[in-house]
């Protein structure tokens, strides 16, 4: 079978190399996003998350009201998030920790990528209008997570790459679900 330039096997090989390169690119985005979430999780300190002295996560949550970006989100923060702040503090604590761990290792990447997009939008809607903030950092972060989610960024240099072939061998509902979420 011919492998000369332009032949079907050569085109297939070139396509495979390009797909692999794209996969590694998404893996880099995924790992950087995961490390970012891991790094930023450290200052979410339970149990009060800064509410008593107006610092920490409480302060950042109030930015959505003091420097509004998206009015419906501001209304949500005023009406729901702040009155139930302890719940949302713990939710952010757990979510950002999980995002860090799962994205770095590339496990169930489509699920955690999608949750990361939601969290990054919540962050952006709180802080992009705060003086001194560089809004494009948040836009880029969100765009990176969208790419990781749509591109299934755990299928190179991630546990999804190792586990998907094995999940595909099982008819168990959890295995089927894991395939969809990775």
């Amino acid at each position: 079978m011919s492998t000369t330039i332009g032949s079907a096997p050569a085109r297939a090989a070139e396509g495979g190399r390009e797909a692999a390169a794209a996969g590694y690119g998404l893996a880099v985005l995924r790992i950087v996003a995961g490390v970012t979430f891991l790094h930023e999780a450290a200052w979410k300190i339970p149990p009060a998350f800064g509410q008593p002295d107006g610092s920490g996560l409480w302060e950042w949550a109030n930015f959505a009201i003091e420097h509004p970006v998206f009015p419906p989100y501001t209304a949500l923060v005023e009406a729901v998030v702040l009155p139930l702040f302890p719940f949302f503090g713990w939710a952010v604590f757990l979510l950002e920790a999980a995002l860090g761990g799962f994205l770095i290792l590339g496990l169930l990447t489509r699920l955690w990528g999608a949750l990361g997009v939601v969290q990054s939008l919540a962050i952006a809607f709180s802080v992009v209008n705060v003086p001194g903030e560089w809004a494009y950092a948040y836009y880029l972060f969100t765009a990176g997570l969208i790419a990781v989610t749509l591109g299934a960024g755990g299928r190179r240099l991630g546990l999804d790459q190792v586990l998907r072939p094995r999940w595909s061998l099982s008819d168990a509902p959890l295995a089927r679900l894991a395939l969809r979420l990775s």
């Binding site: 891991l38 999780a41 920790a97 860090g100 799962f102 290792l105 496990l107 061998l169």
Partner: peptide, 26 residues
């Protein structure tokens, strides 16, 4: 530990769990 440490522990624990219970290839 902090929430950052939780990320490390959770990732390693969940990752090893997923690996340990994954079906074997034939």
């Amino acid at each position: 530990g902090t929430a950052s440490t939780l990320a490390l522990f959770l990732g390693l624990g969940a990752g090893l769990l997923a690996l340990a219970v994954a079906p074997e290839t034939p």
